[in-house]
Amino acid sequence: MARTADPVKREELLNGVVGYLERHGIGEMSLAPMAEALGTSKRMLLYYFGDRAELLAQALDASRPQLGEMFARVTTADEFVDAARTLWRELSRGGERRNVRLLLQVLSLAVTDPQTYGEAARDAVDVMIAPIAEALSVIGYPADSACARATLVVSGLRGLCQDGLVTADRPRVDAAAELLIAASVA
């Protein structure tokens, strides 16, 4: 009889995988060195996560900001702006800042290697757009406009995160984020 996977061990490994990928990147992701660094085996990583692509997808999912929570109670444009500012602070200064690097790597790799990274990258974008578009719908934007505005917020803030990581010009990037957030509900 097959053993049942230990959910606590799986969660510990997933947290370790996220940390490892944040430190080492994903471009040359190899399971053997990752497993060694995590104090486990390649076999156990495959047991818990299936394959490399699924491991990456689950690591991205685990490292993603909880936008549903940030935008769940939005009923006005002012509340939307506050939620978007919270998102920006989390992405640029808070606990999500490390995760942005991982997301940016996946998105970049998806451009040159869509077979390997395309699905994970598309999912990462879609999962972020959906709750923001829903909040914009709640405050009165038609579905098409809400989706386009959510795309502006997600892609714009992501681009500003990259700019901030590259240039370290926080005042300029923060000012641009404020303009972007205001434009999304203008």
Rank of each mutant, 00 (worst) to 15 (best):
R122L: 14
D123I: 01
A124T: 02
A124P: 00
A124L: 02
V125T: 10
V125Y: 06
D126R: 11
D126N: 12
M128S: 09
M128E: 08
I129G: 01
A130F: 08
A130S: 12
A130E: 11
A130L: 12
P131G: 10
P131F: 01
I132T: 02
I132H: 04
I132A: 03
A133W: 00
A133T: 01
E134V: 03
E134P: 04
E134N: 11
A135H: 09
A135G: 13
A135R: 04
L136S: 08
S137K: 10
S137Y: 02
S137N: 14
V138F: 07
V138Q: 06
I139N: 11
I139E: 05
G140A: 11
G140Q: 13
Y141G: 01
Y141L: 14
P142Q: 12
A143I: 12
A143V: 13
A143N: 09
S145T: 14
R149V: 01
R149N: 06
A150W: 00
A150T: 05
T151D: 06
T151W: 00
T151V: 10
L152D: 01
L152Q: 11
V153H: 01
V154W: 07
S155A: 15
S155H: 14
S155W: 08
G156L: 07
R158A: 14
R158Q: 15
R158H: 14
G159H: 09
L160K: 03
L160G: 03
L160Q: 05
L160S: 04
Q162P: 04
D163A: 13
D163E: 15
D163M: 14
D163Q: 15
G164H: 07
G164E: 05
L165S: 07
L165C: 07
L165E: 12
V166F: 09
V166N: 08
T167G: 02
T167E: 03
T167H: 10
T167W: 04
T167L: 05
A168M: 11
D169I: 00
D169V: 03
D169Y: 05
R170F: 12
R170W: 13
R170G: 09
R172S: 11
R172V: 06
R172P: 02
R172G: 06
V173N: 03
V173G: 03
D174Y: 07
A176H: 11
A176T: 11
A177Y: 02
E178K: 15
E178I: 11
E178M: 10
L179D: 14
L180A: 02
L180T: 02
